[in-house]
Simulated scan of single mutants.
Amino acid sequence: MIFKYVYGFPLEKENVQKWLKFAEEVNTTRNKEFTKMHARIGVTKESWYLKQHNDDFEVLVYTEASDDNFSENFQNDKSDFSDWFKREVGRIQNYNLNEGIKMPKLVLDWIEP
């Protein structure tokens, strides 16, 4: 079974460029470590989006996981990369990933028959 999640975090305007640089680093030079972390925690797909409305910004994340406890698994992952990743998110987005993520309730999940 595949579990699907969408969640978001506010992002201050002055941190947008830092976040874009972080996303680029995760997607390039640290991609192998990112992939290994996802394998450890049960994530099979992840997409990040930057949403802007007027002067407000939000990071939106879409995740597919083979394990319904991927968020808890992530909290408990203590690898050097996970520690770096959580520290960077905390620095840039002012959000503590060690506290866990409250997932929104899925209300519609349509797929072509």
Rank of each mutant, 00 (worst) to 15 (best):
G42R: 04
F74I: 10
D67N: 09
K21F: 04
K51M: 13
I111Y: 11
D77E: 14
F3I: 12
W48R: 07
A39S: 00
D67M: 08
N15A: 03
L97D: 04
K105I: 13
G8I: 03
E12C: 09
A23K: 09
A23H: 08
F34P: 07
Y95R: 12
D77F: 10
K51S: 15
T35L: 14
K86Y: 09
F57D: 07
K105S: 10
G42V: 05
Q17P: 00
D80A: 14
A39V: 00
Q17Y: 07
P10R: 03
L50A: 13
G8F: 08
E25K: 08
G42W: 06
W48T: 07
L106V: 10
N27D: 02
G42I: 06
L50P: 14
T63H: 03
N94L: 10
K86H: 06
N54V: 11
D55Q: 12
T29N: 13
D83I: 15
F9L: 14
Y95A: 01
L60D: 04
K4Q: 12
D68S: 15
M1C: 05
W19K: 09
F70K: 00
Y49K: 04
D109H: 07
N98M: 09
T63L: 11
M1V: 07
F70A: 04
V26G: 00
S82P: 06
E24Q: 14
N31H: 06
I2D: 13
K21D: 11
R91N: 13
Q75A: 03
F3V: 12
P10F: 04
D83G: 10
Q52L: 01
S47W: 12
T44E: 06
E24N: 14
I41V: 15
V16H: 01
V16S: 02
T44F: 02
K4E: 08
I111G: 05
K105T: 10
T63W: 04
R40T: 00
I92N: 04
M1H: 05
W48H: 05
L106I: 02
N15V: 14
W110R: 04
K4S: 11
Q93A: 05
S66Y: 00
Q52H: 02
F70Y: 04
L20Y: 02
S71H: 01
F74D: 06
E99P: 01
E25W: 03
M103D: 03
